[in-house]
Simulated assay, not measured.
Amino acid sequence: MALNLQDIPRVKTISKEAFLTQYFKPQKPVVIERFIEDWPAYSKWNLAYIKQIAGDITVPLYDDRPVDYKEGFNEPHAKMKMADYVDLLKREPTKYRIFLWNILKEVPQLQNDFSYPDFGLRLMKGLPMLFFGGRDSYTFMHYDIDLANIFHFHFEGKKRVILFDQKQNDYLYKIPHSLITREDIDFNNPDFEKWPMLKKAQGFKAELNHGEVLYMPEGYWHYMRYITPGFSMSLRAIARNPKNFGKAVYNLLIMRNYDNAMRRLKGQQWIDWKNEQAIVRTHQKNGFTR
């Protein structure tokens, strides 16, 4: 048995009006296949180019180890020179990923390789972020703290994406006071004996190729797995739905600080309690008993 996932719709290109009407307003995802072929990045951006232009920069790396109470919010697990990291990606599978790397700050000339597309949403120009991963590395299922509208541009190789909207929260074993599901769920090959409520979740899937753009609506859960080594850039626009905007403010000002305070106060006991509650609450909401 597999997750209940439908293919994300694909279009070759799209006008601003069609995007707003067909995808933004109904908050549906879409893959746009040929939107950035006029960007210099389309032909230039690959791992070799990144190594050449940013090889001397030390980058923060993350793997798939579970959250530890001693680690602060988004603390890196290791650091490496970009040139060495690219060599590692090309040489062998590695769990090490880069995420939320602000290219504007580190390598300003990369800004010349892309432009901010007009999708009818105001993109946050100070926040283009790069994400890198090796073959078979993946992100935990999560949604972004600001519940933004995200445009995810993929470069080099292939990447598998699974999305769920916020209406699926009751089935996903969401960790309380957090933005992730249980980290021991393998969304690539889920164990429905262990996680029975996943059978009820309805989501979306796609494989992204070089130069394709994925639109992820506000607050969408996303799991990303690198089929080959590669990288992506995200541009974001603030949540427009008042409920989502309110949640974003709560997450940034209250939830994150509360969670960090509880980690300091209770240590691993807090993490363990949250993990247990993810199961208890999901099963309670669905009237499920073993």
Rank of each mutant, 00 (worst) to 15 (best):
A2R: 07
I8H: 00
K16L: 11
A18F: 11
T21E: 10
F24I: 12
V30F: 00
V30I: 15
V30Q: 00
V30G: 01
I32L: 02
F35N: 00
N46H: 04
K51S: 07
Q52K: 05
G55T: 02
D56C: 06
D56Y: 09
I57Y: 06
Y62T: 14
D63P: 15
V67K: 08
D68G: 09
K70W: 13
G72R: 08
N74V: 13
H77T: 07
M80G: 13
M82C: 04
M82L: 13
D84P: 02
Y85K: 02
K90E: 12
K95A: 03
L100W: 04
L100Y: 10
W101M: 10
W101H: 07
N102T: 02
I103C: 10
L104P: 01
L104T: 04
E106M: 15
P108Q: 02
D118L: 05
G120Y: 03
K125Q: 09
K125N: 05
K125S: 03
M129E: 04
M129Y: 13
F131K: 05
F132N: 02
G134I: 04
G134V: 06
G134P: 07
D136P: 14
D136Y: 08
S137Y: 10
Y138K: 03
M141C: 12
H142V: 08
Y143K: 11
D144N: 05
D144Q: 07
N149R: 15
H152S: 10
H154F: 01
E156P: 10
V161C: 05
F164G: 14
N169F: 13
K174I: 15
K174W: 14
P176V: 14
H177M: 09
I180G: 08
F187Q: 13
F187I: 14
N189P: 01
P190Q: 05
P190A: 07
D191R: 15
K194R: 10
W195D: 11
K200M: 10
Q202N: 13
G203I: 09
A206Y: 01
H210F: 06
H210E: 00
P217T: 00
P217V: 01
W221L: 04
W221I: 08
G230H: 00
S232N: 00
S232Q: 00
R240Q: 12
K247D: 04
Y250K: 12
L252R: 14
R256Y: 14
R256P: 06
D259S: 15
A261P: 13
A261H: 15
M262S: 06
M262K: 06
R264M: 10
L265R: 08
Q268E: 09
W270K: 15
W273R: 13
W273N: 14
E276S: 11
Q277R: 08
A278E: 02
A278S: 08
I279A: 03
I279P: 04
R281I: 14
H283M: 08
N286Q: 08
G287E: 07
T289D: 11
R290W: 05
